[in-house]
Simulated assay, not measured.
Amino acid sequence: MSSIVRGLRGFTAFVKGIMGADAFERYLEHHEASGHSGPAMTEREFWRDRMDRQDSNPQGRCC
């Protein structure tokens, strides 16, 4: 049973990566690893910034 659970968790992580749902977590990891002096953006600020950047610089995406 545990191999099924591990498989489902792996699949869920894979889908989140494709959809970009894990972007905030990756941003926090990068922010901490890079040694930025200022505080990290909040999750709301992060998503607003991401959407604003995509709107001002559209690239190939589905929608």
Rank of each mutant, 00 (worst) to 15 (best):
E29G: 02
T12I: 15
R9T: 06
R48M: 14
A23C: 05
R9H: 09
K16G: 02
Q59I: 09
V5Y: 04
A40N: 01
I4E: 08
A21T: 11
I4C: 03
Q59E: 08
D52V: 09
D22L: 03
G35L: 08
Q59W: 10
G10A: 05
P58F: 13
R26N: 01
F46W: 07
G17E: 07
S2H: 12
P58I: 06
R44T: 10
I18K: 08
R6C: 05
Y27V: 02
E43Q: 14
R61P: 02
G10R: 05
G7C: 06
T12P: 01
M41N: 02
K16P: 04
P39S: 15
D22N: 15
M51D: 12
G60R: 12
D55H: 12
E25H: 11
G38Q: 13
E29C: 01
P39V: 12
V15A: 02
Y27N: 00
I4Q: 10
S34W: 06
T12D: 09
E32T: 11
R61M: 09
H31M: 11
G7E: 00
E32F: 09
G7R: 01
M19G: 07
M1P: 02
G17D: 05
G10C: 03
F46T: 03
A40F: 04
I18E: 10
L28P: 01
F11P: 00
F11R: 12
A13I: 13
H36W: 04
V5A: 02
T12Q: 11
